[in-house]
């Protein structure tokens, strides 16, 4: 039983991090102001453990820090050349699996995938691009789905079911064929009960779920990651706190 949140600590890259029994490694690190790269983790939602970008070495064993609970005295390594190299490879795979054309993407400067790639010093995609054919779904009058950019993090799925109680989104298929679908016979967002007020409309870390007709309204210089890299920027979900 924990008496006091400072009672138990672990070491993250040599720094002492206090934790409580409810926290996972990444949650404790974030609470202490330490950055562990991540994409599918969002402090507002239950961890999913799918993107593996937050992988760390805990007592010498690699694990997803968003699902792994720390132990007192645990030695956790995150910011090492080897682990960052593995993260870089995962990011490069995400970039080639979809169609991520940052120069004309309205999420550029606000995109966690792009910002994390910068953080990991990604200079090229390295692998051959898949160039999948993924038409956008523009059927909804207020929101657009650009599937080209989906990284299958399932945050919209979790937000829709856990917060909105709607199940608008789901991941279908397996392995490389996994894709985002919406809950309508027609497969069109307009035929679901999705609303712009839903939590799911505002959680996508990349530029898939886009409010129509407002792209590029925020000038360069005022976007989330213009001023500071993602490692120095509070998570969007924590910004108002």
């Amino acid at each position: 039983m924990f008496q006091n949140k400072d009672t138990y600590t672990f070491l993250l890259d040599g720094k002492t991090i206090p934790f409580t029994e409810e926290q996972t490694i990444i949650q404790a690190a974030m609470a202490a102001g330490e950055y562990i790269p991540h994409l599918c983790f969002n402090p507002e939602f239950k961890p999913h453990g799918s993107c593996k970008i937050c992988t760390v070495s805990a007592n010498g064993r690699q694990t997803a820090s968003c699902t792994q609970q720390p132990q007192a005295g645990m030695v956790v390594e995150s910011n090492t050349p080897q682990i960052n190299g593995e993260r870089l490879a995962l990011l490069q795979m995400l970039f080639v699996e979809g169609n991520h054309f940052c120069p004309s993407c309205e999420k550029s400067g606000d995109c966690q995938l792009q910002a994390t790639a910068y953080e990991m010093n990604m200079m090229s995609s390295h692998f051959d691009h898949f160039f999948p054919d993924r038409p956008v779904d523009a059927s909804h009058p207020e929101y657009l789905l650009d599937f080209n950019r989906c990284i299958l993090c399932s945050l919209c799925v979790r937000a829709s079911s856990d917060v909105d109680g709607k199940d608008v989104f789901s991941l279908a298929g397996r392995g490389i064929k996994t894709r985002l679908i919406v809950n309508a016979e027609s497969g069109r967002l307009a035929d679901t009960n999705f609303s712009g007020d839903d939590k799911a409309a505002h959680v996508c870390p990349v530029g898939v779920i886009i409010k129509k007709r407002v792209g590029f309204a925020v000038p360069i210089g005022q976007r989330s990651f213009d001023e500071h890299p993602i490692s120095f920027t509070p998570h969007p979900a924590l910004k108002d706190n």
Partner: peptide
């Protein structure tokens, strides 16, 4: 073709 119109002014610069 098939892209949202508000993307165009940024995309065409390329």
């Amino acid at each position: 073709q098939g892209r949202p119109y508000w993307e165009v002014p940024v995309m065409v610069q390329r």
